[in-house]
Amino acid sequence: MSKLQALLFDVDGTLADTERDGHRVAFNMAFEDAGLDWSWDEGLYGELLAVTGGKERIRFYLEQFNTDFEKPENFDDFVKGLHESKTNFYTQLMAEGKIPLRTGVERLIKEAREAGMRMAVVTTTTPANVTALLESTLGPDSESWFEVIAAGDIVPAKKPAPDIYYWALEQMNLTPEDAIAFEDSSNGIQSSAAANLKTIVTINEYTKDDDFSDAVVVLDHMGEPGRPFTLLSGETFGQDYLDLALVHKIANA
């Protein structure tokens, strides 16, 4: 076994397919609620994912895709209010159980917990979004399973900057060699790799064409017994679903 001590999980796209069916839908609900005629379809939202952070994504949309919009004088408050509304709609969608965890995620997290493995969430999404997803999928006490919730604006520079990973490792008193990250996107792997973390990537429809050359393993999903993953790159030692033993092997390779 390796000296692996902690699993560091991204959220959006990694734990659940929240982007297309969660965040995008919630943004559109917030726009409609504010009387705006904006609508982010799946194709446009894929382009907006080039930028991490909800408030940043709204600004990017107005800078690149809706340049005719006349910004109000209190533009910062306008963006902040829109994002808060979006978060409320998102947590509502989560509470209604609209978005399940991805294949293999619940099994791996519960196995890690039973084994006493330290875990953290490392994401650019807001803490409220993290809570909503965890409680709606893993149960009301599940946030406590994670030693650190590194989320939202806790550091100024969001992914692809490595700052959020640096912060999480510091809070846990760990070195990069003590942990392994789980990501799904180009911004995510750039962030974790810059923090010198080995990273397992599970792609999704939005990120399948991203550059994951810095990942140690790239899969289509974590897999389940009887529902194997597809290995896209790396070494999985003959196994066809990701369990804690395989994570140790990957970390120690």
Rank of each mutant, 00 (worst) to 15 (best):
N28Q: 12
M119P: 08
S85T: 15
N129I: 06
L232E: 08
A115V: 05
E106H: 05
S213D: 07
P225L: 11
S186I: 12
D33N: 14
N187W: 08
D220T: 13
E170N: 02
F237V: 11
R102E: 06
T207N: 14
R59Y: 11
T199C: 10
M117A: 07
E111H: 01
G46D: 09
S39D: 14
G97D: 09
A193M: 11
R24F: 01
E47N: 15
L108G: 01
V155G: 03
G13P: 00
G238R: 02
V217H: 04
V148R: 00
T87I: 15
A193I: 08
E96Q: 04
E235P: 10
E205P: 13
D21N: 15
Y241A: 03
N66E: 15
A161S: 11
F31R: 03
V79E: 07
L219F: 11
F237W: 12
A30I: 04
I189M: 07
A168N: 02
R24I: 00
H83E: 12
N66P: 09
G81Q: 13
G81W: 09
Q171H: 10
S39K: 14
P225E: 14
V51E: 10
A128K: 14
N187T: 11
V79N: 07
M94E: 02
L82W: 05
V11A: 03
L138I: 02
A112P: 12
A253Y: 13
T199W: 06
L36G: 09
T131M: 09
F31E: 04
I164F: 01
H23E: 01
T124Y: 04
R24A: 01
I149L: 01
D184S: 05
D33F: 14
I250E: 06
P140T: 15
P156K: 06
L108K: 00
N252R: 12
T199R: 03
A6M: 07
F9N: 02
S233I: 12
